[in-house]
Nucleic acid binder design. Structure first.
Lengths: 246, 246
DNA sequence: CGACTTGTTGACGCCTTTCAACGTTGGTGG
DNA sequence: CCACCAACGTTGAAAGGCGTCAACAAGTCG
């Protein structure tokens, strides 16, 4: 379980992008990322400082307690953000989707580790570079600030869920929030993709894998959802909302 | 449980402080508050925009979902930050101590309600005024940004605690973290004051009041702690650390 | 003192975990 | 093509930790 500094990027595919066809101007996630507040001129300045970085399923972008040498925009794919207890118990702090920014906390060391749940494409900025950019561009700092504040309210939602909700409420609430997140990045459907495994869901919701499986089965039997390979079809979202009791 | 806008300040003692003996220059919590990054000149500008506001035990500073019309520095006392589920279940998101800043999330509406656990003194800034100040002073924005980022890692700690720790670990961990927080604001002692009731601790840790009471009794019988009126004396902090398993 | 709030303790019950077995899927190689 | 295997998911039975219910103690305020 040891994670070296930079280990993450050893097997990853790095690409210093020049003013080519995958520059910032063509970035798929620009409108939903922190970069949305930057002008075209500013984006050109950014291009030289960023690298594209691709991870395969299971690879680690950065590890817990590892020096935070960079921050990332997620362009494509899904990552799992986890924190470990010394005895091996694991808490998934969240899942990062396209448009999300990794490294908001920007401490000396990463407080979580980030692992790819499938193929992932990211845009990497060195820590020093990024600090200099935010220093020079107050509106970017404000955008980042707004994002952390939003993350904080999400964390509070999760604290309420972990502390005061039953297993069934947790699972129902999780499916709905995932649907909403996918909707916000353009992937709008009654069928919600589940890029993470049952164990990841369990560690996110403070449950065991068996309980998650049982609750999904129960919702399926009640025709609230339909379990499909790789995801879930929400048949009765209204009932889920009632269960989630938000 | 209805909370009117401004209801908070109806019964509170408001004091527009002028360049008197309790101006920003003499502020007890300045070195540990967000204001620590401001120069004396800037503090003078601030004084006209701030009000002192005193609450008695049980009074509400602001309520959940109430429009966020102001932000606050806590000068003295302790507040409870809570979020409510429609059915009445409650999660305490945190406790605010002197030097803490309330309203960091700075959304349209407050995501939590803040209630005084004893007599509380705060320094109030109108939302518009405060937005203008941060707009004009980038270093204040950076200081606020650093604070939210820190809050976010604290929230992650709490998520790990809520999701993956046993009742005993939760209580032990809570006592230690409270000791550390008091230490950081100058109140350094083996006897940890508990300004909140058992129910508040329970709602913070995702437990019931009975379980909190039982765990405290168990730690007391094991001579790890000594229950004293209004607080706890930590007799064997090392054992607590081991229990907390951080 | 008496009513009320807050905290403690015990007995019991239930929801979730634990332990275990089985089914399913996907990749590999005979 | 299919046997084989490992990883993942599902389901059942039993156990246990924490919640629920209830009684009691302690402190507070009129």
């Amino acid at each position: 379980m040891l994670v070296d500094t930079g280990a993450c990027e050893r097997n990853a595919h790095v690409c210093h992008h020049r003013r080519s066809d995958n520059g910032c101007g063509d970035c798929k996630v620009r409108p939903i990322s922190v970069c949305s507040v930057l002008s075209l001129v500013e984006l050109e300045q950014l291009e030289g400082l960023s690298q594209h970085l691709t991870l395969d399923k299971g690879q680690t972008l950065f590890g817990q307690d590892e020096p935070a040498s960079a921050v990332f925009n997620v362009i494509e794919g899904c990552l799992r953000l986890t924190r470990l207890l010394p005895d091996g118990r694991r808490q998934v702090m969240g899942f990062a989707l396209p448009g999300d920014f990794l490294g908001l906390a920007l401490q000396e060391r990463h407080s979580v580790s980030a692992e790819a749940l499938g193929q992932v494409k990211t845009c990497r900025f060195g820590r020093e570079d990024f600090a200099a950019i935010t220093e020079a561009k107050p509106h970017l700092l404000k955008s980042l600030h707004a994002r952390v504040r939003y993350e904080l309210t999400l964390a509070q939602d999760q604290m309420l869920l972990l502390g005061r909700r039953t297993a069934e409420e947790k699972v129902a609430s999780f499916l709905l929030s995932l649907r909403d997140r996918f909707a916000r990045i353009g992937h709008n459907s009654v069928t919600v993709e589940l890029p993470m495994g049952r164990q990841d869901m369990a560690d996110y919701l403070g449950l065991t894998i068996e309980t998650v499986s049982r609750m999904l089965s129960r919702l399926d039997r009640a025709h609230s959802i339909l379990l499909v390979p790789g995801g879930v079809r929400l048949l009765d979202a209204a009932r889920l909302e009632r269960l989630a009791a938000s």
